[in-house]
Amino acid sequence: MSKFSHLLEIILTLQYKELVTASELSETLKVDKKTIYRYIDSLNKANIPVHTVKGRYGGFYIDKNFYMKPFNLTKEELKSLIMSTYLLTKENGFIYENQLKDAVCKIKQLSLNNSEEFNDFRDTGLFSLELIGNEESLEEKISKINISMNRGRSLSIDYFSINKNDSSMVKVDPYNLIFKEGSWYVIGYCDVKNDVDVFDLTRIKSLKITKDVYMRPHNFSLNEFLNKNCCTFNENKTKVVIKFTGKSVAFIKSCKWHINQHIKELSKDSILFTIYLDGTDDVKAWILGFGKDAEIIEPLYLRNEIKQEIDELNEKYKNF
């Protein structure tokens, strides 16, 4: 993710949360604390009023007079954007299909904040599952979650399940509220799963603060949880799996290629390398650079694209 994207995520996080620590920002953005302090310095140089509270219970906060309001498109404008994702596809010659879908998804989440708009979109049959959680505005949801965390009170959430295609009430002890990959999530203990889980705010139909008291476990690590559940935050990205063999294995393992990379050992000289990307155009040339030591496992369309390119190369050089 670019520095610009990280700065935007920091601004939005500070805008909705009273105080955020460097550790929390570091874990969410997958960068070290020194980078977070450089980001804060960059924001201050851009005249964005981010302040620092020193000490054990310190952190960063943004001036309450500063407010970056999410843009709100008209229903017609938003419909036209959503429809464009159905028309502009790679099959029709549009090479930025994945990037368009990712951008529209982020715009949609920031724009749809009330049930009236949801009902209008439901009639079109487009994205009906994703728009279920809009009985309360984004600001109202975030405010209640922050209050519940500050007071140590559990939340009662009416949450939409894609698997069940229905909503149900769950009791959640919120541990963290994070803005990640263009979306807001609350991470907390779920009484239904009897485990810590992730809840997408766009799928929260309504929520209320209960009188039940809870304490966040001292051994809970946000960083470990995010590493273990990285797939949850990449639903709108393309999963790319590459099998590396031979001499390339040691080289791949020696570097940090992407913030959400995952490496699975297959054997001494064979690994599966998994990343989630907005698009696959740049990674194609990178894969080809490893020659026979790299094999695309998924997605299938990328495997076919590389095969076609290899066939064309073979045709050029077969007479030499």
Score class of each variant (00 low, 15 high):
residue 207 L to D: 01
residue 81 L to H: 13
residue 235 E to N: 12
residue 217 P to Y: 06
residue 173 D to W: 00
residue 23 S to P: 00
residue 134 N to M: 04
residue 164 K to V: 10
residue 205 K to P: 00
residue 170 V to N: 02
residue 320 F to P: 01
residue 111 S to H: 08
residue 90 K to R: 15
residue 66 F to H: 04
residue 148 S to Y: 01
residue 107 I to H: 11
residue 186 V to T: 14
residue 225 F to C: 11
residue 247 K to S: 09
residue 60 F to N: 06
residue 201 L to T: 15
residue 179 F to E: 01
residue 207 L to G: 02
residue 279 G to W: 09
residue 123 D to F: 09
residue 200 D to C: 11
residue 102 D to T: 13
residue 134 N to D: 05
residue 152 G to L: 03
residue 287 I to A: 12
residue 241 V to Q: 12
residue 280 T to K: 05
residue 114 N to E: 10
residue 203 R to P: 04
residue 119 N to C: 09
residue 121 F to E: 07
residue 146 N to T: 04
residue 107 I to L: 14
residue 27 E to W: 02
residue 247 K to R: 09
residue 149 M to V: 02
residue 189 Y to D: 03
residue 93 G to Q: 07
residue 123 D to G: 01
residue 68 M to L: 15
residue 320 F to H: 07
residue 163 N to K: 11
residue 182 G to H: 05
residue 116 E to V: 08
residue 191 D to C: 00
residue 100 L to Q: 11
residue 197 D to F: 12
residue 199 F to C: 02
residue 27 E to K: 03
residue 272 L to S: 03
residue 19 L to R: 12
residue 134 N to A: 12
residue 89 T to E: 08
residue 111 S to W: 09
residue 180 K to D: 06
residue 180 K to L: 13
residue 219 N to V: 05
residue 232 T to V: 15
residue 103 A to S: 12
residue 129 L to F: 13
residue 72 N to A: 10
residue 56 R to H: 07
residue 249 V to P: 15
residue 143 S to W: 08
residue 185 Y to N: 05
residue 239 K to C: 15
residue 315 E to V: 05
residue 61 Y to Q: 00
residue 218 H to G: 04
residue 285 A to F: 13
